[in-house]
Amino acid sequence: MTRHLFARASGALLSWAIAGGAMAAAGATDVSPPSPARSLSCLQRPEEPPKFPERGNYDRTSGFARVKLRFVAPDRPPEVQLLTNSLREDMLDVVTRHVDRYRLPCLQPTDGTVSAVQEFEFSNTQKAPLPLGPDDTTPRGRLDLCYTRPKQDMIFNVMNAGREVNNIVITMTFAGDGEQPPEVKVLHAEAVPFAVDTVVEWARLSRMSCRKAGEPPVVLQQMFRLYPPGRARKVLKVEQLDLVDFLAMTENPHAEDVRFDFDTMACPFNVNYTMYGPSLPNEVTDGEKKPDRAIFIDWLARQHLKFSSPKQARALFGEDLQIRVPCGRLDLRAKT
């Protein structure tokens, strides 16, 4: 039995689901209804969902966690096992305190141990959620991905941070079983060596616990920005832009002499744009992965924002925004 519930908490979107079952399985011919405890019908939990632990202005951090809950007594909180997690430490603490208040008062000795799985997703953003593609599963294609980041946040010695923001992009390749650390490679480092070493050491503590030996490797990419003392984080004050407004901020949108007919692309639609260039290719995602949009998406990823200086480009490296693509046509061909 699975129940899906959705709630909104303090500016952060929280989506979660509870799937209940008992460790002692019934026989294949047993068609009797489950007990109240096995169906989770008496589950007691806080009325308010967890609140996003915001850190200052423009804290748009997002994250996802899946936890397994095991109820072994009617008057005790569940035992908690972390199955998947990309939440930072303070978010995970909020989730842990939340589920610690769960009770299953109708649990009887004949029920054995009742297990449930719950998912928490924090997304403190004004951007619209992108629709899922045909080969994705909820939430956001991560249902079978059991990546677990280190429980403790990264400890960064600010005395060795240098004078500018440290931008680092890595890949983590999980190729062994669930106990094997990932192979970490640095794709981009605009940083002091100490910052790079700190990121690599921390990333190697990540795990993908559900993996079995011999399964195909899984590669994840992650970006880090580490700040020296007194250096405030710079962010884009807007999270959404219309396509024309976005192109007005780019270096040379006419360079490739292109024309696009958005009426053939299931318009209107939104895309998310992450600015990495020119050091790395910019990243553009549309969620639905429609083939009719592929050429436009590739072209949009090659458009670089026009920064006032290399310092500004470094400060905004890795920032993202959402671009609203309308219906109609975009014609950037040279006029004769």
Rank of each mutant, 00 (worst) to 15 (best):
R70C: 11
A25Q: 09
N157V: 06
D292L: 04
D263F: 06
A175S: 14
M208N: 00
P310M: 08
D292I: 04
V169M: 03
T148G: 06
R76Q: 13
V196M: 09
I18A: 05
R60P: 03
S62V: 09
H98W: 14
R142K: 10
Q108W: 09
C146E: 12
W202L: 01
Q221R: 02
D59A: 11
R333T: 14
R97D: 13
R293L: 06
A315F: 01
R88Q: 11
T198M: 01
V95H: 01
T148E: 09
S279P: 02
R259W: 12
S10E: 15
A24D: 14
I168N: 00
A9D: 14
R259S: 13
T198H: 00
F71A: 03
L43I: 04
K237D: 08
D100L: 09
M159G: 15
L40Q: 10
E179S: 12
E89L: 06
V196T: 14
R101A: 10
R103K: 07
T29M: 10
F71T: 00
G328N: 13
V80P: 00
A26P: 04
D100M: 08
V158N: 11
R103T: 01
R231F: 15
M275Y: 11
A161P: 05
E54W: 11
V199C: 02
K335L: 04
F269A: 00
P253Y: 10
V284I: 03
L236A: 07
G214H: 15
R163W: 10
D257S: 14
N167Y: 01
G176H: 02
F262V: 01
A22L: 07
L107H: 05
P46I: 00
Y102I: 02
A128H: 07
M1L: 06
A9R: 09
D286N: 09
V94R: 12
L87F: 10
H254N: 14
T148Q: 13
A22R: 02
P253T: 07
D30M: 03
L330S: 12
D75N: 12
P129I: 04
Q322C: 03
G328S: 13
A73H: 13
V218H: 04
L247M: 11
L87M: 14
V169T: 12
L220M: 05
F224G: 01
S86F: 07
E119S: 12
A248Q: 08
Y227A: 04
S41C: 13
Y273P: 06
E283W: 07
N252A: 15
E47M: 08
W16Y: 13
I170M: 08
V95D: 01
V184S: 01
N270M: 07
N124A: 15
D59I: 11
K290L: 13
L330G: 08
K234M: 09
N270P: 04
V192N: 00
S308F: 11
V169G: 00
V219G: 01
M265D: 07
E121N: 07
Q108N: 09
L220N: 02
F64Y: 14
E121H: 09
T250V: 12
K185Q: 12
P50N: 02
D59Q: 10
F52V: 07
N160T: 15
P78A: 10
L321P: 03
K311P: 06
L220K: 02
D90E: 14
G63H: 06
G230Y: 11
L300G: 01
R293Q: 05
D292C: 05
K311T: 15
A28V: 02
E283N: 05
C146P: 11
V186R: 03
K289T: 10
G318N: 08
L145I: 13
S209V: 05
V235L: 05
T113V: 14
L145E: 13
V72L: 09
